[in-house]
């Protein structure tokens, strides 16, 4: 009996060791990029990619930052993603208010139509959007990208919020109406405050999804001053002008904001998701 338990325990440690090895393997690219972003070109040439850096050599990062005007790219990405997050949540809320609480006629069809915006490959929209934006003078502006992604993100937001609002407690709505509140007031004073955790989660998703987008920003933001972080890095990757340490610097500068958001938003997400689960 006890020898069986012992053998089972032993097996558990073997499985744990295997999983840990696998998990560490997943991290290798992150580690190797970080190590080499902090080396001088001479050090990389001399010791190769596997050695630990001798000291903190930040010149590669600084050079890359200045060369691509990385501060501007960060600002562009922040402005675009922030604007999309806020606007898309507002439009989603309006849609969901009509579909989930207002229960307008044909809401299932409307929901399916909205979802199309999320399902269509962007390639099936890109050329007309490119053409139309040139016609109205919005080509190569951040505003064009904001408008497009507000619609694309709203699709998912409408879907999620309609489901949430359709189970919104009717008594609360009726009580507010008894007190003489109109639809507009009910929306802002009752519905929005009560769904705040879900709205926060949506906003986080929209921000990160928009930050990560590549294809449409690549087409629309062609001038250096308008480019987002992924576009700037992705376009540079094609050029063979950069040495190894500068390339790893560029990779590290792309990784850092993502990890930062992850850490900041982790709390909102866990809180929001559990709040949703309890409801």
């Amino acid at each position: 009996m006890s020898s069986v338990t012992l053998r089972q325990d032993y097996l558990r440690y073997v499985v744990l060791a295997g999983l840990t090895m696998f998990a560490l393997l997943m991290l290798v690219p992150f580690v190797i990029v970080t190590m080499n972003a902090l080396k001088s070109p001479a050090e990389y040439a001399g010791d190769g990619p596997l050695s630990l850096p001798d000291g903190l050599y930040l010149q590669g990062l600084i050079d890359f930052w200045n060369r691509v005007d990385y501060g501007q790219k960060l600002l562009n990405s922040l402005m675009i993603s922030g604007a999309v997050a806020v606007l898309a949540v507002i439009v989603s809320m309006f849609n969901a208010y009509a579909l989930g609480i207002g229960r307008v006629k044909g809401r299932m069809w409307l929901l399916i139509v909205f979802l199309l915006a999320n399902t269509l490959p962007h390639e099936a929209l890109v050329y007309p959007l490119y053409y139309l934006s040139k016609e109205v003078g919005l080509y190569d502006t951040r505003l064009a990208i904001v408008l497009i992604f507000v619609v694309i993100q709203t699709a998912f937001g409408t879907y999620l919020l309609s489901a949430v609002l359709s189970s919104f407690p009717r008594e609360v709505l009726e009580a507010a109406q008894m007190d003489g509140a109109g639809r507009w007031q009910v929306l802002w004073r009752v519905v929005v405050p009560m769904t705040r955790p879900t709205l926060a989660v949506l906003m986080v998703f929209f921000f990160i999804w928009t930050w990560n987008e590549f294809f449409l920003p690549l087409i629309f933001l062609i001038s250096n001053d308008n480019q987002t972080v992924p576009v700037a890095l992705g376009v540079l990757q094609g050029q063979r002008l950069m040495d190894a340490t500068m390339s790893s610097s560029s990779a590290l500068l792309g990784i850092l904001p993502a990890i930062l958001f992850f850490l900041i938003f982790q709390r909102t997400l866990t809180r929001g998701v559990t709040a949703g689960a309890i409801k």
Partner: peptide, 23 residues
């Protein structure tokens, strides 16, 4: 362990491409 498996998912796909393109 879950966090280790999940980490690549937080990268913008273009940045993941830059990481591997370099490696």
């Amino acid at each position: 362990l879950r966090a280790c498996f999940y980490l690549p998912q937080i990268l913008p796909i273009a940045v993941a491409g830059v990481v591997w393109g370099w490696i």
